[in-house]
Design a protein around this nucleic acid. Structure first.
Length: 484
RNA sequence: GGCCCCAUCGUCUAGAGGCCUAGGACGUCAGGUUUUCAUCCUGGUAACCCCGGUUCGAAUCCGGGUGGGGUCACCA
């Protein structure tokens, strides 16, 4: 079997926008195959569409890979022995191979204008036929072709499909797949601007870069016959194809940025840990042989095998990612967590109190970014809603209770949560106050919120001075007679 | 519409003929712990698309339906 020989894989992103989670997902599998066999994982930039090129998109991809820890071997910013790894820099190479195809009769010049093609498709649509090139230029004589060429007529080069027969391959994920060539169009190989189309460039590059296994989305299945026919025309050995399922939106359509957040870097911005994201997407369409759900990227690279990849397209539902991220955060050693938290801390965050604050909110963090929202009342002025404060009682009672609380805690010498708890519980029991009302009142008075970390610890960390100030302010808030 | 791919709880999945009265995880619901939220613990809810066939036996194999998806560009 081929398992023992080194596998060379590649990811071929187009710099047309954001770094896509699908790219990272596919790359994980590519990397695993390469690592397991001592092969290489290559990054090739497919920038043959000048109209969709986005400045900076390529850099985003490298940045995303770096953040995730997806370490490729060749291409990208690293270069390598089969470069250039950017298609726009390989134009002369494609030209050379196009000429080869033209000479061998596997391709032909087409001078049809886009207007004619549009009209042709329109007519076909009206006639109920399937839209495809009518092969008008396929039988142009050499003289006719030369004449047009000499006249400088714009042209494209098309692939000459066989008239009949079938093309098939053994897909590593789907098994035997077969197409009738009569369903394959005479597609464009070289565009009029001199750039190759994806279909042509991908075949030439994969061959020249010695890619042995092509992992790509299911969306490419229907164009694989074109690619296979090109390999045949060149007399090249095609790679193993493995068509992965398509990740989907909730409505089952192909994952899109319109319906989902598919930007890798935006997950970083939102405070997700790269290891959590990686673990989460590894579980899409694949499962660990042991049934484990939590495993490191290293572990994944070791145990991944194509035969555990599902054929059905998984829906990208990040609910589980939220849960997983929280779990990963809580498993991090405190010192490391503090380091990871740094980029998400607001400028006014009291770094010197991190050791006190973190334990209070640790189990409430879903993302790293939550740290700000969860701790802000410790170091920023609060706003207390009078209505909320006396919601479960009356302003009079609350005013009185707050007074008692102030009297009870004011004398405290050691401001610890144990002492605070002792004093306040005693007060509550002494008057037989309803716990939920009494403690919630204090909570709202000193934090302005209903949901906070445990009350006594919160008070302890808040400090005596600030606690008393806020209690007094809350009391004033209610006792100040409202003038109508 | 042609061609192609696919089909297990709401979601991610286990399952490669009997171990399945279909397992796990997330979510959700209920309860416990608790001064709130969260964490944690316990329990519940919930699926093999349909119809044939093969077989002693089918979630698993075959066929047909149905459903969903992809693709039909000088985009990838």
């Amino acid at each position: 079997m081929t398992e023992t020989s080194p596998i060379r894989t590649r990811i071929a992103p187009s710099p047309t926008g954001i770094a896509h989670v699908g790219t990272a997902w596919m790359s994980m599998f590519d990397l695993a195959l390469a690592r397991q066999t001592g092969g290489q994982f290559v990054v090739r930039i497919e920038d043959t569409d000048r109209t969709r090129f986005v400045e900076g998109a390529e850099e985003k991809i490298y940045e995303a890979f770096k953040w995730l820890g997806i370490d490729y071997d060749e291409g990208g910013e690293k270069g390598g022995p089969y470069g250039p790894y950017k298609q726009s820099e390989r134009l002369n190479i494609y030209r050379e191979y196009i000429d080869q195809l033209l000479a061998s009769g596997h391709a032909y010049h087409c001078f049809c204008t886009s207007e004619r093609l549009t009209q042709m498709r329109e007519d076909q649509r009206k006639a109920g036929e399937l839209p495809r090139y009518d092969r008008l230029c396929r039988n142009l004589s050499e003289a006719e072709v030369n004449e047009k060429l000499n006249a400088g007529t714009p042209y494209v080069v098309r692939q000459k499909m066989p008239d009949e027969g079938t093309v098939s391959w053994e897909d590593a994920i789907r098994g035997h797949v077969e197409f009738d060539v009569r369903n394959v169009d005479d597609g464009v190989l070289l565009k009029s601007d001199g750039f190759p189309t994806y279909h042509f460039a991908v075949v030439v590059d994969d061959h020249l870069m010695k890619i042995s296994h092509v992992l790509r989305g299911e969306e490419w299945i229907s164009s694989t016959p074109k690619h296979l026919l090109l390999y045949q025309a060149f007399g090249w050995q095609p790679p193993v194809f493995a068509h992965m399922p398509l990740i989907r939106n909730a409505d089952k359509s192909k994952l899109s940025k319109r319906k989902n957040d598919v930007s890798i870097l935006s997950y970083r911005e939102k405070g997700y840990l790269p290891e959590a994201l990686l673990n989460f997407i590894a579980l899409l369409g694949w499962s660990h042989p042991s049934g484990e759900e939590f495993f490191s990227f290293e572990e994944f690279l070791k145990v991944m095998a194509l035969d555990r990849i599902q054929k059905t397209g998984p829906i990208f539902d990040t609910k589980k990612l939220d849960w997983m991220n929280g779990m990963y955060i809580r498993k991090l050693p405190v010192e490391e967590l503090i380091q990871r938290l740094q980029p998400y801390l607001p400028s006014d965050f009291p770094q010197d109190r991190m050791q006190q604050l973190l334990p209070l909110v640790l189990e409430r963090l879903v993302t790293l970014k939550d740290i700000e929202e969860l701790t802000s009342f410790f170091y920023r002025p609060i706003e207390v809603d009078a209505q909320l404060l006396s919601r479960k009682s009356t302003p009079e009672v609350v005013t009185q209770q707050l007074g008692e609380v102030i009297n009870a805690v004011s004398p405290l010498e050691d401001w610890t949560h144990q002492r605070l708890e002792g004093v306040l519980r005693q007060l509550q029991e002494q008057h037989d106050y309803k716990k939920s009302q009494f403690f919630m009142m204090i909570r709202i008075a000193v934090t302005g919120r209903e949901f906070t970390p445990p009350l006594f610890e919160t008070l302890a960390v808040l400090g005596k001075q600030l606690t008393l100030e806020r209690l007094a302010a809350a009391k004033d808030l209610l006792s100040t007679p409202k003038t109508v």
